[in-house]
Design a protein around this nucleic acid. Sequence first.
DNA 1: CGTGGAGTTGAATACGATCAACACCGGTGG
DNA 2: CCACCGGTGTTGATCGTATTCAACTCCACG
Lengths: 193, 193
Amino acid sequence: MASIIDLIPQEAKLTPDALNMLKAQIQIQQYPKGTLLHQSGYMPTKSYFVKQGLLRSFVLDAKGKEQTFMFAPEGWIISDLGALTFQQSSQLSIEVLEDATVEVLTNDFFEISEGLLSKLGINISRLLIKRNMVLQKRIIMLMSATATELYQDFVTTYPDIMQRVPLKMIATYLGITPEALSKIRGEIAKNNT
Amino acid sequence: MASIIDLIPQEAKLTPDALNMLKAQIQIQQYPKGTLLHQSGYMPTKSYFVKQGLLRSFVLDAKGKEQTFMFAPEGWIISDLGALTFQQSSQLSIEVLEDATVEVLTNDFFEISEGLLSKLGINISRLLIKRNMVLQKRIIMLMSATATELYQDFVTTYPDIMQRVPLKMIATYLGITPEALSKIRGEIAKNNT
DNA sequence: CGTGGAGTTGAATACGATCAACACCGGTGG
DNA sequence: CCACCGGTGTTGATCGTATTCAACTCCACG
């Protein structure tokens, strides 16, 4: 995955000037595993496009435990767009799970690109709507599915993530404890012998 | 709440022509309590802006039970924007909880208004981002909060809805059973004597 | 009146959380 | 090279919370 610039639709045909304006908002960085890119409670100043490696965002629940909010493998953007847009402090923390090469985006990046694209008659909101759909699906799952169903859905939706992330983080992504997930896994393995 | 047209930012200063184009996508309708405005499994053809009354959307879970996805009182829009934008069938059904006066919007309404506004340099995506934040918050709650916490959060966030909808729908909105919610309520009442 | 849906309450059950013990590496330092 | 260690995942026992099933009340509405 080369760059977030590649995600801009072909038909945009941005001028060199416009492209440069965007590129000025991007800074390539490398971070080792374990780096905390953003800490909850602060206003986000950057977003991260993953070129290589793996990031995750998480929140601290009422009991002080980390709950995984999302994973971001290659080609994904991780960002608290809401906090960023409305200048609020973010509940989310962002950390590096695998040594990563990321494009660090300034807070102006999205506004500028939306400005450029909307002038060209391209609606960027489709991306937001897609993200909406993902969130909506997750809510429906969390409301009505059992832990086993949640796990099975996760495995089929993100098969690669399974191999790359410690079990305990997947558990908190599903809103259950690591022990519970381990037992579910055991049960499923038993039934497939 | 007069019309969805009133939600268009002041600074837009749409031309009369533009306004008429939008108004042509709106049809005012009255529906009695109990009307099913949209059924899950079909592609949505309309969205609904609530002038008066109360709507809700819901899904059917794996066991065939209705799970409330959202409530829409006066001034809210109810719509499966994702399914609509990407021409998919919707998981959501939409029903009328209180006799309602709604503005029925064609599927073109959002595209047209985004087109009009983006030409004027106004970014409509803030609305989507706001919606994102609401969904995000709900996910975090569902992942880590107990039923009691979910209920208390609901009461403070939507105090008016509490009075207007049957308990069982609030229960499924929170992802719990009506019996459980009834007991939680009883406990809370006991502690406040 | 009578009927059916909504809400409450109780008993039994199931599911996941918690707590604890242990196995299994993957380092690190002696 | 090996002993030690901490972190991760597994497994078991117990506990707590929410579900399920059932009975009952209370209205709203015919």
